[in-house]
Write a protein that binds this DNA or RNA. Structure first.
Length: 501
RNA sequence: CGCGGGGUAGAGCAAUGGCAGCUCGCCAGGCCCAUAACCUGGAGGAUACAGGUUCGAAUCCUGUCCCCGCAACCA
């Protein structure tokens, strides 16, 4: 049996989940559900990143302990993911003790291999904040809080010989042994590695208390990114004590936002190379939501709240709308009103209306619908092609293309109804009426499968309306996507699949 | 001349060098099964700009203008 290990980045707990983090997580969930549907053994990992100075600062501001803040925010993440029906297999927290164990083991191993040395970290330090700032964070060269120029400060810390891996990384990326998608991100990274000399990476901090202490020097804590990246290993339960990592290793797909590209495409593979651990098969850099062309962010005050969006559109619809709006690898502009338009067109007028339309037409006869002698070759062919495009699209992480292929089926079904006018056939030609309705019911059954990874509950509802709830759930996808063989005795539902807003 | 991406219909997007398409919106018909839904047709484009290569360019090359992201220890 094929295995499929998929990860999202772990989210930093200095703020609550917004639509951006929901986007990555829902995308991962759709893939996880799709691969499970195919009968693969899936491990889907997500979680929270809880260490670092920013969390400590946020806690201090709220006059609480860092751990308490983490518990609180993480609980919120779990709650929102629950609402969005995220089917993760494990939720990792970097404050888990078993995670700390992995980090300690990993760092020790690096040290034993001679890849760690003591050096001087130099940076711009604000005495008021008691932390380092990067040039970019400064406002007019000053600390944004204290309006003072930070001093150049250096301290002892430990470095990882990142520079030693530059050539190896280049080779792996050029030879496609390390797959980075989409293409433009790969280009970006290649040109970065070709033009710049990698510097060694400071992997510990003396003045950040909220972190995992180094195994050989308890005065220092692990740099948060090292801590965070190792979640992909610790999340599988690997603590380094035995050589064998889980059978799920390596990750088949790792999703990440373009903001954390360097960490995941340079540092992460380098760390794995350092310990001769197999690299992830695929790293996929997705785009961001923009709102009126502006980056969505908490600091800009324009972040959309996934829970509120779910209240407006319903969870299933929200999942669908997020992924249907634009190609996954690019940025895309979204807004409540665009979602609204898409909801009406695709879901209420499209799928929802078709579902009700067909069930009502079917209910005009009290007989079962059995597979007819005469089959519409055209419809069967369209469905076969749709499955081909759909599966290929999801394999390529082209969610929008998969959705497009489903929409074409819906449009084709509506056309089929109009052309055949089953309401007239009912009076004139009953057996033809049965034929036509059979084809429509069979299309609905396929649609139930097609939308399943995106909208699990609506999929159930379609099967329920077809009176096949249990029968379909027992099937594998290979059986499910076959044409015909089903005897339908549908039961129209009171419930509207997608009410107009 | 730091790096990468982008500029195509009112909006959002698509097009291995081969008649510029899709979705939404808009207009006109049709239908009366369906959630004022569905179907058909239509209007709407110097593909940012200026050159070049080519039988042929949205696509390749050169230059210009504009927008976005990244620029490393920041999650």
């Amino acid at each position: 049996m094929n295995k499929f290990y998929i990860t999202t980045p772990i989210y930093y707990v200095n703020s609550y989940p917004h639509l951006g983090s929901a986007y990555t997580t829902v995308a991962a969930d759709v893939l996880a559900r799709f691969h499970r549907m195919r009968g693969e053994e899936v491990f889907f990992l997500t979680g929270t990143d809880e260490h670092g100075s920013k969390v400590a600062e946020a806690a201090a501001q709220k006059k609480t302990e860092p751990q308490k803040l983490c518990d609180q925010v993480t609980a919120k993440y779990e709650e929102v993911w629950d609402t969005l029906k995220i089917s993760y297999n494990y939720f990792i927290r970097t404050t888990d003790s078993q995670h700390a164990q992995t980090v300690r083991y990993f760092l020790n191993s690096l040290k034993e291999k001679g890849l760690i040395y003591k050096g001087q970290y130099q940076g711009l330090y604000c005495l008021g904040c008691e932390r380092y700032y990067t040039e970019k964070e400064l406002v007019d060269g000053q600390c944004p809080f204290h309006k003072k120029k930070p001093i150049s400060f250096s301290e002892e810390c430990y470095f990882f010989k990142l520079s030693a891996f530059q050539e190896k990384l280049l080779k792996l990326i050029r030879s496609q042994k390390l797959i980075i998608e989409p293409q433009e991100r790969r280009n970006e990274l290649l040109s970065f590695l070709e033009r710049n000399q990698l510097e060694d990476l400071a992997v510990s901090r003396a003045n950040v208390k909220w972190g995992i202490p180094l195994p050989w020097d308890s005065q220092q804590t692990a740099y948060v990114w090292i801590d965070a990246l190792l979640n992909y290993l610790s999340g599988l339960g690997w603590q380094g004590d035995s050589q064998k990592i889980s059978d799920f290793w390596p990750p088949d797909v790792q999703l990440l936002g373009k903001d954390i590209l360097r960490f995941h495409l340079v540092i992460w593979p380098a760390l794995l190379l350092a310990l001769d651990i197999p690299l992830p098969r695929r790293l996929y850099v997705h785009g961001f939501f923009t709102i009126n062309g502006q980056k969505m962010g908490k600091s800009l005050g324009n972040a959309l709240d996934p829970e509120k969006m779910a209240e407006v559109f319903g969870v299933d619809a929200l999942r669908w709308l997020m992924l249907s709006s634009f190609p996954f690898g690019q940025d895309g502009d979204i807004s409540q009103s665009k979602f609204y338009d898409q909801y009406q067109a695709q879901l209420a007028n499209g799928l929802g209306n078709l579902f009700r339309r067909v069930l009502t037409l079917a209910a005009k006869s009290d007989q079962d619908f059995t597979p007819p002698q005469k089959e519409e070759k055209k419809i069967i062919k369209i469905l076969q092609q749709t499955w081909k495009i759909y599966e290929k699209s999801l394999d390529d992480l082209k969610f929008e293309a998969a959705i497009e292929s489903v929409r074409k089926v819906i449009a084709e079904a509506d056309r089929y109804v109009d052309q055949n006018k089953p309401w007239e056939l009912l009076k004139k030609d009953f057996s033809r009426y049965q034929e036509v309705i059979y084809h429509l019911l069979e299309i609905l059954r396929h649609l139930g499968w097609l939308i399943r990874p995106f909208m699990p509950d609506k999929s159930d509802l379609i099967f329920k309306g077809l009176n096949l709830e249990l029968a379909e759930k027992k099937k594998s996808l290979i059986q499910g996507k076959k044409w015909g063989g089903t005897i339908f005795s549908p039961t129209p539902l009171e419930e509207i699949l997608f009410p107009r807003l």
